[in-house]
């Protein structure tokens, strides 16, 4: 794959001060890039740093160390550049003001960013935005409580699109929605991407959704990227034991297949201690890993290629690459 890089994060670190202790390191040396009109899927469990990453990418917070560049320029808060990248949150109702109508919410954005010089211009832009997310103009005067979850998320997406961004960071955009509505929002996002040449950072714990829309997937664990590569390779033949466990843990909606029991071996919980179990030197996944060896306690594994486009941060996987590609699922024996 080749193309323009629209978003580049280089060695990004984020620390938060903690009362009476060392700072909490929410992100550790994260390097990621997003190509034009493509989707980077970011998966991981709570506390892995994926939402912190989202906030840094849109300039809501600044990295402690490292660099984030949007369209080739360093991101600084308040700069016009920030308009190029917009964030869509999980719960549309908590990101919409309950006291103002749909049209007002969209107009407000246009006024703040000085888009459209007259009222009429702004009004027609509002209709255009509603059209983009396939909401009929009769929703203009609705208040958020008069909308279904799917409709509210469409409004939130329309609002993000109002400033004509190049990149959308979607933080669990379908998690708060009912199953029947999720497909609707995913279909909309795919169509908008093709129509407007958008790039997405799609953050979710729903691997099936992420797989469906992403070109490249990054798996995060305790603030680090532990596996990265094309969607098919990362999720169908995962190399990092954590990716395998994550992929196997999700109950597959197909009674003829089941999780490979060996892939499910994982103990403890991801946020047990913010300081990784391997301490400052070892592997952050050490305490939960079924494959751990002596070297894992001594040396921090760097993200290194196992295939040309596929990187993994695991001593064991890198030493014996491709023993045999093992998927997270197996056929269920007929009972």
């Amino acid at each position: 794959m080749s193309g323009d890089i629209v978003l580049q994060a280089t060695a990004v670190e984020k620390e938060y001060p903690a009362r009476g202790g060392p700072a909490v390191r929410a992100l550790r040396g994260v390097t990621l890039q997003v190509e034009r009109a493509s989707t980077l899927g970011v998966v991981g469990e709570s506390g892995c740093g994926k939402s912190t990453l989202a906030r840094l990418m849109v300039g809501l917070e600044t990295p402690t160390r490292g660099r984030i560049e949007v369209m080739g320029h360093a991101l600084e808060p308040g700069r016009a550049l920030a308009r190029q990248i917009q964030l869509v949150f999980q719960d549309p109702f908590s990101s919409l003001n309950p006291r103002i109508t749909v049209a007002k919410a969209l107009q407000e954005v246009l006024v703040v960013h000085r888009l459209g010089s007259t009222r009429t211009q702004r009004q027609s832009r509002v209709d255009e935005l509603l059209g983009l997310v396939a909401l009929s103009p009769r929703y203009r005067d609705r208040y958020p409580h008069e909308l279904s979850g799917g409709q509210a998320q469409r409004v939130a997406i329309a609002r993000a699109l109002a400033v004509e961004p190049k990149i959308l960071v979607l933080d669990e955009p379908t998690s708060a929605l009912d199953v029947s509505v999720r497909a609707e929002i995913l279909n909309l996002l795919v169509r908008l991407q093709d129509q407007l040449d958008l790039s997405y950072v799609f953050i979710s714990h729903d691997l099936a959704m992420v797989r469906h829309v992403s070109d490249v997937i990054a798996v995060m664990y305790l603030g680090e990227v532990v596996e990265h590569g094309p969607y098919g390779e990362v999720l169908d033949a995962p190399c990092h034991p954590y990716t395998r466990a994550l992929a196997a843990a999700i109950p597959v909606p197909d009674p003829t297949r089941r999780a490979d029991p060996s892939a499910l071996e994982v103990s403890g919980r991801p946020d047990a201690a913010r300081e990784p179990l391997g301490g400052a030197t070892g592997c952050p996944y050490l305490g939960r890993c079924p494959d751990a060896e002596a070297v894992c306690a001594e040396q921090h594994p760097a993200l290194r290629p196992i295939e040309p486009d596929h990187t993994v941060a695991c001593h064991v996987a890198l030493r014996a690459p491709r023993r045999a590609p093992r998927g997270p699922l197996v056929e269920r024996a007929p009972s």
Binding site: A183, A208, R211, H212
Partner: peptide, 17 residues
Amino acid sequence: TLPRDGAAHRSALVQIG
């Protein structure tokens, strides 16, 4: 509506409407 293994990457999923 579920993105299942058979569904092509980025293909339109069934919507209930």
